[in-house]
């Protein structure tokens, strides 16, 4: 049975079903209780499950993660919310040095099954610190799983899997897509490490995740008008990254474009393209291309649409990999050789 839900409601449903299914699951975060979260994602959950299981936290991000770790020692499975992407940094040590390494440090004898929900990404017209994509910091840390969602169904099933996982998981929710509607089947089970081919094509592979998958799908439709077949891969998991699925695709298409909102330097695209070059060099017919945020701080949102990977920038990159006319033809960079 399916139902039509927004992505925000799909997250809410996943949280409710997880709370219902396991009495050791609890939620903790700022304003998630009576208010229902600043995006209303946790709306109604405190009224239904009580203040002991849906906890309004003091405003201390390090403490949200740190106390969740302590609860984990007693067998609780905490789903912590960081209110906005740009607010996660005070919790950095507790995430990358504490929960990520606990299993390794104790040789598998202690571990904490923590899920950290992070509304992330731009295109919401907000002020500074509310539109960032910090996933690469966490992908760089062993012991963490980092996953995203691109549709309401993905949000529901992937969050259920994250909460059920015995590893610490960062679940990056594309807040710009919270009001995207889609069919959700609550019986669909998803894992935390397999990419999905969401459109098939023979000419170019576009790999994307989170909010950028929808843009990639639109690029595939637009390219089809010109007779170009684009294969779109929703990476889903950022760490561990499913390189196999992308390599298999590139062996068929010979061309790769990677797109995400985060800046390109030291990013998921850096890692993915490196891995593909290492493993499928002889299959590549053109240099891989990427469409990412620029290597600047997130800009004022009045100009964010020029910073974010747009449909036109994606199509331009597709053209580049095909040797078609692109914006960079004849581009001369001063001082560059």
């Amino acid at each position: 049975m399916t139902e039509t839900l927004t992505l925000a409601k799909a997250v809410n449903a996943a949280l409710a079903d997880s709370l219902e299914g396991d009495d050791r699951v609890l939620l903790m975060g700022e304003d998630i209780g009576q208010l229902g979260g600043v995006f209303r994602v946790t709306d109604g959950l405190q009224a239904r499950f009580g203040t002991q299981r849906v906890i309004d936290a003091p405003l201390a991000e390090s403490a949200i993660i740190g106390t969740a770790i302590g609860m984990g020692y007693r067998g609780f499975r905490v789903v912590a919310e960081i209110q906005f992407d740009g607010f996660i940094y005070p919790a950095f040590d507790q995430i990358v040095a504490q929960v990520a390494k606990l299993r390794y440090r104790s040789k598998g004898r202690a571990s904490v099954p923590l899920t950290i929900r992070v509304p992330y990404g731009g295109a919401i017209g907000s002020v500074e610190h509310h539109s960032e994509s910090p996933e690469a910091y966490f992908a760089h840390t062993a012991g963490l799983r980092v996953v995203t969602a691109s549709t309401p169904q993905e949000a529901y099933s992937t969050l259920r899997a994250a909460i059920a996982s015995d590893d610490p998981v960062l679940f990056f929710e594309p807040k710009g897509k919270y009001y995207m509607k889609g069919e959700v089947d609550r019986t669909v089970v998803r894992d935390l490490e397999t990419a999905s081919i969401v459109a098939q094509g023979r000419d170019v592979t576009i790999a994307a995740y989170g909010p950028t998958v929808e843009t990639a799908m639109r690029a595939a439709i637009a390219a089809a008008d010109e007779g170009i077949e684009v294969e779109v891969i929703d990476l889903r998991a950022i760490s561990p990254l499913d390189v196999d699925t992308v390599v298999d695709s590139v062996r068929r298409t010979g061309r790769l474009v990677v797109a995400h909102e985060a800046p390109g330097e030291g990013s998921v695209s850096s890692e993915l393209i490196t891995s593909v070059v290492e493993r499928a060099f002889s299959s590549l017919e053109a240099a891989p291309a990427r469409v990412t945020g620029y290597d600047t701080p997130y800009p004022p949102s009045a100009v964010e649409h020029d910073y974010l990977p747009s449909l036109d920038r994606l199509l331009d990159a597709v053209d580049r990999t095909l040797g078609r006319r692109s914006s960079r033809d004849g581009l001369v960079l001063e001082g560059a050789r």
Partner: peptide, 20 residues
């Protein structure tokens, strides 16, 4: 809990354990 090298980080784990 395992010995903690990051100064003070364990105080939050203790507090969370106590809450639990």
């Amino acid at each position: 809990a395992p010995a903690q090298i990051i100064i003070g980080a364990q105080s939050l784990h203790a507090t969370g354990f106590a809450m639990a």
